[in-house]
Each structure stands twice: as structure tokens, then as C-alpha cells.
Amino acid sequence: MLKYLILLFVGIPFIEIVALLYSGKWFGLWPTLLLIVTTGVLGAYLAKREGIKAWQQFQYRMQTMDAPGLALIDSVLIGVAGILLVLPGFITDIFGFLLLFPIVRKQIRPLFVRKLAKKIQNDEIIIVNGKRIK
């Protein structure tokens, strides 16, 4: 767990700073700043649009008494995409944009489901009457 935290708080910002510096060197200051602002605005718009679609899918599944599992997973992945898009930098923006595409989320969903199932199987997450305990 510690190695993931080190990667998260040291590795990713380091890579982002290097990418921003190279971008500034290759394109110049103003085009780099414009690109950062553009990806932020476009990302926010796309995250909102996809989030609304996921929410509508969730509501539909609840109304038809279907399990909302995939809609919930999509909502989580769209939330992660939104967070990545808010962070300054190009690498996080790329991953954030990728998560906004339904085809990419469809490929990632099985990994998410397997990880969640493993945690439930190992009693790291216990579900009783629809409530998470632990």
C-alpha cells in the first residue's frame, strides 16, 4: 500500500511536471496554458454529460427493479475521470478523457468487478441487508 501512495503523491506529480516543462519548451508558455485550460473545460463538460447518462441509467435500472451494478461502476469510473481531469497536467487528463469513453469503461469494468469480488470473498467488505460493514 505504501508503494502506491508514494507513486500517487510523488511519482505522478513528478511525471506531470516533466510533461508540462517539455510542453512549455516545445510549444511555448501560452499554447501550453491554453491547452491546460481547454482540456479542463472540455473535460468538465464531458464528465458532466457522461455523469448525467450514468445517473439516468441508474434511475432506469432502479425503476425497472434491475440491479444497478454496471451503472454504479460507471458512475465511480466517471467520478475518477472527473478527478483526473481537474488535476493539472497532461498525463492525468489523458487517463481522465479515456475513462469518459463508454468503450474504455466497458474494458475496465471487469477489473473493477474482480477486485470488488475478491475483497468481498476475503471478508474485507461484508454486505448485510444491502449495507456495507467493516
Rank of each mutant, 00 (worst) to 15 (best):
L2R: 15
E124R: 15
R132S: 13
K3A: 14
R114I: 00
G40I: 02
A54P: 05
T38Y: 09
T38H: 06
I126C: 09
V104P: 04
L99F: 09
L7V: 11
F95L: 13
P68Y: 10
E124A: 15
W55S: 10
P31W: 08
A71N: 05
L46C: 07
S75D: 02
T64H: 13
Q59G: 04
F14S: 12
L20A: 14
K48Y: 15
M65V: 06
M62H: 07
S23F: 06
L46R: 14
R49A: 15
L85I: 13
I12L: 10
V80A: 03
V86G: 02
K118H: 09
R114L: 00
G40S: 06
K3L: 13
K48L: 11
T39W: 06
I36L: 13
G79L: 01
M62T: 12
Q121L: 08
G28I: 02
V80I: 08
L33T: 03
L111W: 09
K25L: 06
L20W: 14
G96E: 10
G28E: 05
S75N: 03
Q57W: 09
R109C: 07
I12Y: 06
I120D: 01
Q107C: 10
G40H: 03
L5I: 14
F112L: 01
K25H: 08
A71G: 10
I91Q: 07
F95H: 05
G89S: 11
I94L: 15
P13Y: 13
G40D: 03
F101D: 02
R132H: 12
K115V: 00
Y4L: 05
A44E: 05
W26F: 00
G40C: 01
L72I: 08
E124Y: 14
G24T: 05
F112T: 03
L5N: 14
I103D: 04
L87S: 11
G130V: 09
P102K: 09
P110A: 08
V113C: 00
L8M: 12
T64F: 10
R105T: 10
W55D: 07
G82I: 03
D66Q: 15
V104F: 09
F95K: 04
L77H: 00
F9H: 07
W30H: 02
I52F: 06
W55T: 06
R114Q: 03
D66I: 02
K119D: 13
I103E: 09
V37T: 08
F101E: 01
L2K: 15
T64S: 14
L33P: 02
M62P: 01
K106Y: 13
T32R: 03
L70F: 02
E16Q: 01
F9K: 01
K119M: 13
F112E: 01
I83W: 00
Y4C: 00
F112A: 04
G82R: 11
L98P: 00
G82E: 01
F27L: 07
F95I: 08
N129I: 03
L29P: 02
K115R: 03
G24V: 01
F58I: 05
F9W: 06
L99K: 08
A54T: 11
I52R: 14
K48D: 02
W26L: 05
A54Y: 08
L8I: 08
